[in-house]
């Protein structure tokens, strides 16, 4: 009984919050009115899952009045089962992963003599494209913005979500500026600018924060990340677009700590079937500044295998680190001309 009531309370809260806070966005809105959302709750599905599992287990154990030995052995069993399940799902997902093919990873260096209709790949006919970009700090953000610009193509079926740490006003400004640039490129009723929103999540570890509290703050930002990944974009309601924009298609990060947490959460959500497997593809792009050594985050992504693509921007680096792909200098566009 307990889990259902808690869930319903949560659901009620969620709905009322939705009503008062979230106004429907129009596509023609200017960038200054761009919807920025701070997270204060967690996603309904995840909450129900966690709350239900925890409370039913605890209640069951307490009521049955088992001895401590039984309790411990049960915990261990559950742990082993869960661990095996996670490991199995992890490797199963990696095995089934679509291996990126040769020619499409490297951006074309020479202009191709193509007519207007022969652009490959052509994604204009897809029902929905939903990108999530994680903006870090300073150089990371500058590189990410450049990468987005280098890969941008005006299409009405694209939604972009920017995930930014709370307090990172510089990245927020850059994201807004980028959206303004995109809007300027497609003025008026031209809907090829697509839609966008910005999510603010808690920083994994603030500067000078004591190390022993880091796991807790990481957990909080993980919940925020889960929310940012599973909350549907407001301009793309189920009514108009079905489940097309339910979950992000591609998550792009280039190195900030928050980026790893968001991607890890995305991977876990996929492991527990909370997000379908053919969604939330993770692309990690190693910063252009690294040409011979990999950053710590890069190594983490390589070792854990949670990224679908670990892209590096120097050929020399791709040769040293097996499993990484050379994708060209995507955040230094001027070098390709």
């Amino acid at each position: 009984m307990a889990p259902t009531t808690s869930a319903s309370v949560l659901a009620g809260k969620e709905e009322s919050r939705n009503d008062q806070e979230l106004k429907p966005d129009t596509r023609a809105e200017s960038y200054s009115q761009l919807h920025v959302e701070t997270v204060s709750g967690i996603n309904l599905t995840a909450a129900t899952f966690v709350a239900g599992a925890a409370s039913s287990t605890a209640a069951g154990l307490l009521l049955s009045g088992l001895s401590w030995l039984w309790l411990i052995s049960l915990v261990i069993t559950v742990g082993i089962v869960l661990g095996t399940f996670i490991v199995y799902r992890h490797f199963e997902m990696i095995r089934r992963r679509q291996k990126p093919g040769g020619s499409w990873l490297v951006p074309s260096n020479t202009p191709q003599p193509n007519a207007a209709g022969t652009q490959v790949p052509n994604t204009t006919s897809l029902p929905a494209i939903y990108f999530t970009y994680i903006l870090g700090s300073g150089g990371h953000t500058a590189e990410m913005i450049e990468t987005i610009k280098q890969s941008f193509r005006g299409q009405a079926n694209i939604h972009r979500r920017y995930i930014i740490s709370i307090g990172d006003t510089s990245s927020l400004g850059k994201a807004r500026l980028l959206e303004a640039t995109i809007k300027d490129a497609y003025p008026g009723e031209d809907d090829r600018a697509g839609t966008s929103d910005i999510f603010l999540i808690r920083r994994a570890r603030k500067v000078h924060q004591p190390l022993y509290t880091a796991p807790f703050t990481c957990l909080i930002s993980a919940f925020h990340a889960a929310n940012a990944l599973t909350r549907m974009p407001n301009p793309r309601s189920t009514k108009d677009h079905g489940k097309g924009f339910r979950y992000p298609h591609v998550i792009v990060t280039n190195g900030p700590a928050n980026g790893f947490i968001v991607c890890l959460v995305a991977h876990l959500l996929k492991i527990f079937y909370l997000v379908p497997e053919n969604r939330a593809k993770v692309v990690y792009i190693e910063t252009w500044a690294r040409s011979k050594t990999m950053s710590l985050t890069g190594k983490l992504f390589l070792k854990t295998g949670i990224a679908d693509v670990v892209g590096v921007q120097h050929e020399s680096l791709a040769k040293i680190f097996k499993g990484s792909q050379y994708i060209g200098p995507v955040s230094a566009g001027f070098l390709r001309r």
């Binding site: 990126p100 093919g101 499409w104 990873l105 951006p107 074309s108 202009p111 790949p121 994604t123 990108f131 990468t147 280098q150 890969s151 941008f152 193509r153 298609h249 591609v250 792009v252 593809k281 692309v283 679908d308 693509v309 892209g311 994708i327 060209g328 995507v330 566009g333 390709r336 001309r337």
Partner: peptide, 9 residues
């Protein structure tokens, strides 16, 4: 000149 990696993804 566009980077098409994200489209393929």
């Amino acid at each position: 000149e566009r980077v098409t990696l994200f489209d393929w993804m």
